[in-house]
């Protein structure tokens, strides 16, 4: 048992202290702090981050008006109910509905986790990809862990995850689909990796979202192609075909390449 200090000259001193105190428990790589500070966000900052009308139009874009408040929600520093109230006060029920609907996804996954704690790490349903669960790899390949996959945009998202601990929702979907469908790794390996890094890492939202992408909690697998990434992220992320060779294909071609067709 160890009593830890509460006095630090600055953030860097705290990081150094924690690196020493938790040395034995930390992974060998990624031993830096996030640029996102865990101090309590001010009411003004929270208010500024909630732009429900712009959210409804742009939330799927990498640079869209998402709140980026999830780390504070995860730590219970802000309640989703409170965010809903701010949105409503700003623009009224109709214009706030999309934002409130997304907040409710978080409540839904919590509800599912409470109903089915057994499915947090087990496939809730079989894969709908044509492949049996046992055919998926158990661990993440090294090139994914090092952000050195053949695809520049995927490497960009991995860097976001491991350096900042925050990742845009669409990028989470791309990364999860890449891991499970393009590389055929079990969703559990990816989910554990996200929980290690995400400041908002929440087993309910995370693991069931991975299962949704994988198709073990939903009707069909989620996939994407380079054209889709370029549409939503192309202004900031490298989406050139020559630097993203695995992703540059039509959906039809990807379905043929990634999934097994029913034979009978």
């Amino acid at each position: 048992m160890q009593i830890l200090s509460s006095q630090f000259s600055d953030r860097a001193a705290l990081t150094q202290y924690l690196q020493a105190q938790f040395n034995d428990l930390l992974p060998k790589t990624h031993r830096q702090a996030s640029p996102i500070d865990g101090s309590n966000p001010t009411a003004q900052f929270i208010d500024q981050q909630i732009q429900p009308a712009a959210y409804a139009r742009t939330r799927n874009f990498y640079q869209g008006a998402v709140s980026q408040l999830s780390p504070f929600v995860r730590q219970g520093m802000i309640e989703r109910r409170h965010l809903a109230n701010i949105a409503l006060a700003k623009v009224g029920a109709k214009a706030a509905e999309k934002f409130i609907q997304e907040l409710l996804w978080g409540e839904f996954w919590q509800h599912v986790a409470d109903q089915r704690p057994d499915a947090l790490w087990e496939d809730a349903e079989p894969y709908k990809t044509g492949f049996e669960a046992y055919t998926y790899k158990d661990t993440l390949p090294e090139d994914i862990l090092r952000a050195e996959t053949p695809n520049a945009c995927i490497n960009h998202f991995i860097q976001d995850l491991t350096v900042t601990g925050y990742l845009h929702n669409h990028a989470r979907m791309y990364l999860a689909a890449y891991v499970v469908h393009f590389r055929r790794v079990r969703w559990q390996a990816g989910a554990a990796w996200f929980l290690e890094h995400l400041l908002d890492g929440d087993i309910a939202a995370n693991n069931f979202s991975w299962q949704w992408v994988a198709s073990t909690f939903g009707g069909k697998p989620y996939i994407f192609n380079l054209e889709n990434v370029a549409k939503y992220c192309g202004d900031v992320v490298d989406c050139r075909p020559e630097t993203n060779p695995e992703l540059d294909a039509t959906y039809e071609a990807l379905h043929l390449r990634l999934f097994k067709r029913a034979t009978s």
Binding site: Q32, G38, H197
Partner: peptide, 13 residues
């Protein structure tokens, strides 16, 4: 397997 990012975020909170 919390990364340092997560530990520091909680610590700052």
């Amino acid at each position: 397997r919390y990364s340092l990012k997560r530990i520091q975020f909680i610590y700052e909170a």
